[in-house]
Each structure stands twice: as C-alpha cells, then as structure tokens.
Simulated scan of single mutants.
Amino acid sequence: MREWHADYLDACNRHDLDAIRSFLSPSVRRAHLPSGSDAWIDDLAELFTAFPDWRWRRVQLIAEEDRLAVHLRAGGTHAAAFRGIAPTRRHVNVAEFAMYRVMDRRIAEYSGTGDHIELLAQLHGGLPT
C-alpha cells in the first residue's frame, strides 16, 4: 500500500490526470463531495489550472488492510482564478488529511480535508502561509 500511494502521489505531483484516473474507481465515493472519477478529475483540473506548481508531500501514512490514512502537506502559487477568487500570486501551504479505501488498486472511497477551506482562507488573507 505504501508503494501504491507513492505511485499515486507521483501522478498527482506530475498533474497527470490520465494517470490519476487509473488510481480511481469509476464510481469512487467522496464524503461531502460529488462522487465518481469524473468529478474527482474535474476538481483536480481546476486546482492544477489555478496552482500550476501545486505539489503534495507525504508526512505520514498508516496502512491497514484495504485502508490508508495519510497526512500530507500541499501548496502552490495562486496563478489563475480559483473558486471565484482572482489570482493573488500568493503561495499557500496547507495540511491535508485523507482516508482511503482501496479495492483492486483503485480508490473506492475517500474522506478527508479536501474541501479547500484552509486554502480559501489563505487566499483571502485570513491565515498565514
């Protein structure tokens, strides 16, 4: 599972949406977010357009059977509109926490802090980077 996640994170850091899709179940469920791999890819495409240098770094990973718990640091420079906010050129740095259920080497379920609340607060100048 650790190697699998390293490969997934590498695809994410390369912004390779086709490779990322290969890690997703077509019907992946996301807590509080639209389900399905198309919605996941659309969200990442929006993020990568707004933050062309966006990268994740794994801090900690815990694997148990088909479950992963991952603590990540992520960040990038706001270079294009994101969620209605014009480019600020601010560099943001956020903590992310993700829980995955992986079936047949594909993410079947996700829950975590991928709602961008901390990121949006930094773009509005509410939190330090």
Score class of each variant (00 low, 15 high):
M1A: 14
R2D: 13
R2H: 14
R2T: 12
R2S: 10
A6V: 09
D7I: 02
Y8N: 02
Y8H: 10
Y8K: 03
Y8E: 06
L9P: 02
L9C: 08
L9D: 07
D10P: 00
D10M: 12
A11G: 12
A11Q: 11
C12D: 07
R14H: 08
D16F: 02
D18L: 09
A19M: 05
I20G: 09
I20S: 07
R21T: 08
L24H: 10
S25R: 09
P26K: 10
P26I: 06
P26D: 11
S27N: 15
S27P: 01
V28E: 04
V28W: 00
V28N: 03
R30N: 05
A31H: 15
A31D: 14
H32N: 13
H32P: 03
L33S: 09
L33W: 05
S35G: 10
S35T: 10
G36L: 06
G36I: 04
G36W: 03
S37D: 08
S37N: 01
D38Y: 03
D38T: 12
A39T: 05
A39P: 05
I41L: 12
D42F: 01
D43A: 15
D43K: 08
L44S: 09
L44Y: 12
E46N: 10
E46C: 06
L47P: 02
L47R: 10
L47I: 11
F48R: 02
F48C: 01
P52T: 06
W54L: 04
W54Q: 00
W56I: 00
W56Q: 00
W56S: 02
R58P: 06
V59M: 04
Q60F: 06
L61K: 04
L61P: 06
I62T: 12
E64H: 11
D66I: 08
D66K: 13
R67N: 13
L68M: 12
L68F: 11
A69K: 04
A69F: 14
A69P: 06
V70H: 03
V70F: 04
L72P: 01
R73T: 10
R73E: 12
A74D: 00
A74R: 02
A74G: 14
G75E: 09
T77G: 03
T77F: 03
A79E: 13
A80E: 15
A80P: 07
A80T: 13
A80V: 07
A81Y: 11
F82P: 04
I85W: 08
A86K: 14
P87G: 08
P87M: 03
P87K: 07
R90K: 15
R90H: 09
H91K: 13
H91E: 12
V92P: 02
V92T: 08
N93S: 15
N93H: 15
V94E: 00
V94W: 00
V94L: 03
V94H: 00
V94P: 06
A95M: 09
A95D: 14
E96F: 02
A98C: 13
A98R: 09
M99P: 01
R101N: 10
R101L: 09
V102R: 01
M103R: 15
D104L: 08
D104H: 14
R105P: 04
R105N: 15
